[in-house]
């Protein structure tokens, strides 16, 4: 595999895990615009643990994901007091606070960034991304996943169905925190260098868009969104600003034409082999 392709694949794996981290909360109806903040904590934690504290690579990654899971759990309580635009603002503020903190903390290199002396290979990223993808498909198939989707559709009716909405949303934030942190840890250990400026508001915006454009109703959504926005431009060698320009136009058009995302629940049910073969059966539709 060429170095170029390997680089593209590495970015894809990291972005996919990142996107799933944002997807978990979005699937339960919460928009998290502070993704970069969570990812930064994971990256710096793993980088510092592996570099400065001398932990083994696997332990650093695990610990980093645990730390961001805890951050997700803790931030969920204040964040869930807010709704809609206010939640967008609260999570956005969280991202800015983390970025500001890292930029001004000398232990982590401040504005100079931090070199991470240890390294994980591409196969680890591929393995992790595959595992996370399968995990997400599993989660969406469970009753917990069903409750998340119900909340996304109609939170008030879910309450009256006996769903503990708050607990489900807290769980979503915690899992989301773990996944975004994992993506950050892998980023730090694969690239060997982290700087606070990378984890800016635009990064949070981009990853949220992968998820919302991909679709929040099924676990296919983030996969479709991430492939669409990180693999396709690379394959067609569209670079620089033109790539982002097309990205922006696609977003506006998608919102106008297909606001529920590329992959919707209805699309999956139309494409499922069972239904394709079942048409013409006794029940029909």
């Amino acid at each position: 595999m060429s170095g170029y392709l390997a680089g593209v694949l590495a970015i894809f794996c990291i972005n996919l895990i990142f996107a799933y981290g944002i997807f978990v909360t979005a699937a339960a109806g919460q928009i998290n615009l502070g993704g970069a903040g969570f990812q930064a904590i994971g990256a710096y934690a793993a980088g510092w643990l592996a570099g400065q504290a001398g932990l083994p690579i696997a332990a650093s990654i695990m610990t980093a994901a645990l730390i961001t899971a805890l951050v997700g759990l803790l931030i969920s309580f204040p964040a869930l007091r807010t709704r809609g635009v206010y939640m967008v603002l609260a999570t956005f503020a969280f991202g800015e606070v983390v970025a500001g903190f890292l930029l001004h903390t000398d232990v982590f290199g401040g504005a100079m960034g931090m070199v991470v002396p240890l390294h994980v290979d591409l196969w680890v990223l591929v393995l992790a991304a595959t595992f996370v993808t399968l995990l997400m498909f599993f989660l969406m198939a469970t009753r917990l996943g069903l409750a998340m989707r119900a909340i996304n559709d109609d939170e008030d009716a879910s309450v009256v169905m006996g769903v503990n909405v708050r607990a489900v949303q807290v769980a979503a934030f915690t899992i989301g925190g773990a996944l975004t942190g994992l993506s950050g840890a892998l980023y730090a250990l694969n690239f060997g260098f982290v700087e606070a400026q990378y984890f800016n508001a635009l990064l949070s915006i981009y990853v949220l868009l992968y998820v919302l454009i991909g679709g929040t109703q099924t676990a296919w959504g983030p996969l479709a969104g991430t492939v669409f926005f990180t693999m396709l431009p690379e394959l067609f060698r569209v670079g620089g600003s033109a790539r982002y320009l097309i990205f922006g136009i696609v977003i506006v058009l998608m919102m106008a034409l297909r606001p529920e995302g590329i992959v919707t629940r209805a699309l999956i049910s139309r494409l499922s082999p069972r239904r394709l073969f079942a048409t013409g059966g006794a029940r029909g539709n």
Binding site: A150, D153, M161, R265
Partner: peptide
């Protein structure tokens, strides 16, 4: 729930 299937809606009632 508009994005759940018939049986999923009913199973939600079992929560």
């Amino acid at each position: 729930m508009p994005h759940l299937s018939v049986v999923e809606n009913i199973m939600l009632g079992q929560h």
